[in-house]
Write a protein that binds this DNA or RNA. Structure first.
Lengths: 214, 214
DNA sequence: ATAATAGTGTCTCTCAGACATTATTTA
DNA sequence: TAAATAATGTCTGAGAGACACTATTAT
């Protein structure tokens, strides 16, 4: 039993994706319950690489928007003691070729299955962080294909924030943020064709928080 | 050599304190260099408790403003491989009774000694986070005694942000934030006595970020 | 021509930022 | 009474939020 003299450690990922107009999270089966996908940290890989590899194995997507969320380590959260460095990922559904790895499945966030330990709380926190990021940035496009219309982007914002947004104000501000730009192309559909936009890779990641001081 | 099949883990703390009108960080000697204070995580303690105990041993202060900063785990950051969950603490100098534990010392952030591994980078990140928090919150008072004047608070903000602030705008906004309140007392000194303020423990921790959307 | 969706501009009101003088104490 | 520090209010400009109509396509 000496194996448990020190807590063990893994990396977990809360991966969000937009499927059928609903926000989904990737979960793995764990006995009766489900859990966030996780992996031990190999000696030779960084935490972030571990998360990236895990996502790549499960979904086939190698490059994703990824950021560290929080490290959970309450003694009671798992038995035996486990410390989890949790990452937060946004995946565009357009790059999911086929289904995820058989051990994993996408679940709509409004109808999650029973989850092990504190994973429900972790997902709730990741959702808060996602909403918060949408409020002051344009990361929402990370859930869309490379080219997208402003209406599609607005629908994502409305879906995740859970409220209607004014179309003119949305456009003004999302463009002012300067991290997406118009392309020459349009997408034709039922009504008037819509201009396609794309991420500006040269954009300075400009986080404008409301400062109490200049 | 099988001891290194999995990375080991510790908790580190970046503790800030205001001494002699300068921001200081607590460091421990580590051979030729210095390092952030750290401790392994006992099986029975949470990460946060581990940080609190460590600070308490080193400074005697049991209750501090503490938040998780980031988890560092690059394979190259230490040899043997080490993953560090880093916390960020603010300590009021008024509660430091005497010197810290002999293994630790306060260093002015403008004149840090050589640091091991990535600890300089970690401190730089903690400073950025501290500045950022000051910009949109009133946490600065955590570096002051229980009762303080607005001029003292403003000096802290100016020192850490590295710029002069307008007195009237500072007062307006710091009071609007609603997390400190006037007391009945004044502090007498060289000029006109100054009203003392204190933290409102009932204050809703109201983080007002500038939102891109309502 | 009708239905569907895309796209556009203005006004108002709030709040951030700049700014100078009066008030109260000690030496 | 002079020196030191505390305390206070207003104006202006920028930006958030509310709001309705025209444009372009497919059917």
């Amino acid at each position: 039993m000496e194996a448990s003299l020190i807590p063990s450690l893994d990396v977990r990922v809360v991966a969000f994706c937009l499927l059928e107009e609903r926000l989904h999270v990737l979960l793995c089966a764990a006995g009766e319950c489900f859990e966030l996908p996780g992996a031990p940290v190999p000696l030779t890989r960084s935490l972030e690489e571990t998360a990236t590899c895990l996502l790549s194995q499960l979904t086939g997507i190698r490059e994703t928007y990824l950021e560290q969320l929080y490290t959970y380590g309450e003694p009671a959260r798992a038995n035996p003691r486990l410390i989890s460095v949790v990452y937060f990922a946004l995946l565009p559904a357009s790059r999911l070729y086929g289904s995820p790895h058989p051990s994993a499945r996408w679940w709509a966030v409004e109808a999650l299955p029973p989850l092990t330990g504190d994973h429900a709380e972790i997902i709730a926190y990741a959702m808060r962080r996602l909403r918060y990021k949408l409020e002051y940035s344009a990361v929402g496009f990370q859930l869309l294909p490379e080219r997208f219309t402003l209406s599609e982007l607005q629908r994502i914002y409305e879906m995740i924030l859970g409220e209607k947004l004014d179309k003119r104000n949305f456009r003004r501000r999302i463009l002012q943020a300067g991290i997406i730009e118009a392309t020459a192309e349009c997408r034709t559909g039922e009504g008037r064709p819509a201009r396609l936009y794309r991420y500006r890779p040269d954009a300075v990641a400009e986080v404008k928080a409301r400062r109490l001081f200049p």
